[in-house]
Design a protein around this nucleic acid. Structure first.
Lengths: 318, 318
DNA sequence: CTGAAAGCGCTTACAG
DNA sequence: CTGAAAGCGCTTACAG
């Protein structure tokens, strides 16, 4: 190892480099080591370090769809929280797939400090030899989830107050458990509020185009059956609804109110601005990262449930 | 090592697991090993393997902005090409930042098989102890780039034919070299075609919102000075132009033609559909991955230049 | 065709 | 406060 040009042993260098020199290495020697490290541009070998230690400083985040702005937010929250102590690497599943056990398995090999899995496929166990934190995985053990009830209840109350008595729901074709929960909570709240949910359910990929196409095909039937509002399981889907309505000249919210889930940054600037149940992505990432950090420090934290709320905007007449 | 339950030596297991057993290990023994591996769910330790070999099977892709759909395409191209032989991990820079040397340095530690860097900051050297392939980095050594000339020339020809004589350019505030090239080529082609480019240049972050805001502020001045078309350095910027125009009731393309660069999937469904210089992201990813693979196999390939072309649509009256 | 052994570059008890 | 040594789990010449 080159860094012994400092005139010390390998062990001493290791201590200094890892910041474990307090009270173990004299200041002048530590300084000499640091200088040598600087001069030689030395950087500890990750593979060797990981092997010797048993685990490394990588944190891997497995996400289903990086093109959804929601995940960009989650990533930001995770990165800001883990800081410099760990190195974040990302992995994406194939388009339209949710993370499954095999994905976790593949990254377990890397001996990361921990693995974060966002919106895993429903039913995946995700157990591994390293700490795993699930995000947005209702039913998952120790998952960091949103508490959707407040947001959904507020949405349904808002729709009821606006006079809607028959609504349609546009679901996502995702296997993520969170979508099942959104739908169920929404339908229950509607029933309790005396609002009928059209049995003509529809669903689409989480893209504007797919949603617009799907909605175009059912919109006339919805309107004919008396539907006056459509709630989409995600903002990107709601954008598709807005587009489909605009293409047919159906005024929003006058003839059709529209709402979504996520409250993406762009939802404040759509035409009209979109009412949405806010699911703060950065906070989800932050909470999950904190939980991982706690696990690593041995201070097991309770799995938080993040509050959601309604952001009413013009698309529902707010 | 558990897998010797097959009754062989560690070395033999290693050979079989790595598929180097042809003509070196007898079939019955190899079979026994494979069975044992299967039963015990053994998976080779990445850190140890990487350390012993000198480098691992990771390919890291450093990208500037995962929320841009363009990069989702690039990622897809890379993944499809490297296949199962390597494992792809992603890293994102902070929002609005381009990859710099320090990013490469951080990942060099991992001893990946190679590093792919998309749209690095102009001037970054990116030299490392592992193979590095630059994507979309004009001026970068051995970079895989687009040949923008055909696309830009076609765009300018198209504008000229449509009668435009004064146009504005909306640049991105990115430090990526490709943006400088886009602008320069466009301005040169305009000059050659006798089209004036408004000296009132504007630029914005690569987001719809930022672009819409920027354009709103200069649109009146552009129109007053006789500008009849605006070309944006990226489709996401062009979307912002469309939005700003729509908000003011300026008809596109009648009063203002709009065009962009990228030809994102959604550009065919904007209102109106967007004319764009197609920059096929998946092909960029594929070409870069092929180049990396070639380097790893010692069959140094020439750096390809990917053709670009114009996709004329309604936003310029096509 | 198979196995014993060295070595990859670190970290961490353990002596001094 | 400092260093010699073992060991992390593999791979790969090298003997047999």
């Amino acid at each position: 190892m080159v860094a012994e040009r400092a005139g010390t042993s390998i062990a001493t260098v290791s201590l200094v480099v890892n910041g474990k020199d307090r009270g173990r290495v004299s200041v002048p020697i530590a300084t000499r080591v640091r200088d040598a490290v600087e001069e030689l541009g030395y950087v500890v070998d990750h593979a060797a370090s990981t092997l010797a230690r048993g685990s490394g400083d990588l944190v891997v985040l497995i996400a289903p769809d990086l093109s959804n702005p929601f995940f960009a937010e989650v990533i930001r929250g995770v990165r800001d929280t883990i800081g410099d102590r760990f190195q974040l690497v990302l992995s994406v599943t194939e388009r339209g797939e949710q993370p499954v056990d095999a994905d976790v398995r593949r990254f377990e090999r890397l001996r990361p400090a921990g693995i974060l899995v966002d919106a895993p496929a429903a039913g995946a166990s995700m157990r591994a030899s390293v700490p795993v934190v699930l995000l947005d995985a209702p039913g998952g053990l120790g998952a960091v989830n949103y508490d959707l009830s407040p947001g959904v209840d507020a949405l349904v109350g808002h729709l009821r107050t606006a006079g809607h008595r028959r609504v349609a729901y546009l679901d996502g074709t995702s296997r993520a458990a969170t979508f099942a929960v959104r739908r169920t909570l929404f339908e229950e709240a509607c029933t309790a509020a005396g609002i009928a949910v059209s049995e003509r359910g529809a669903s689409a990929d989480l893209s504007i185009e797919a949603a617009a196409t799907t909605v175009s095909a059912v919109l006339d039937a919805w309107l004919a059956s008396g539907v006056t509002a459509v709630v989409a399981a995600a903002d990107t889907l709601a954008y598709g609804v807005l587009r489909a309505a605009a293409e047919r000249g159906i005024p929003v919210p006058e003839a059709l109110a529209v709402a979504g889930f996520d409250d993406l940054p762009s939802s404040s600037v759509t035409a009209p601005a979109l009412t949405s149940v806010a699911l703060p992505g950065a906070e989800l990432g932050r909470a999950a990262a904190l939980r991982l950090l706690a696990t690593l420090d041995g201070t097991e934290a309770p799995a938080p449930s993040l509050p959601t709320r309604l952001v009413p905007r013009a698309s529902t007449g707010a």
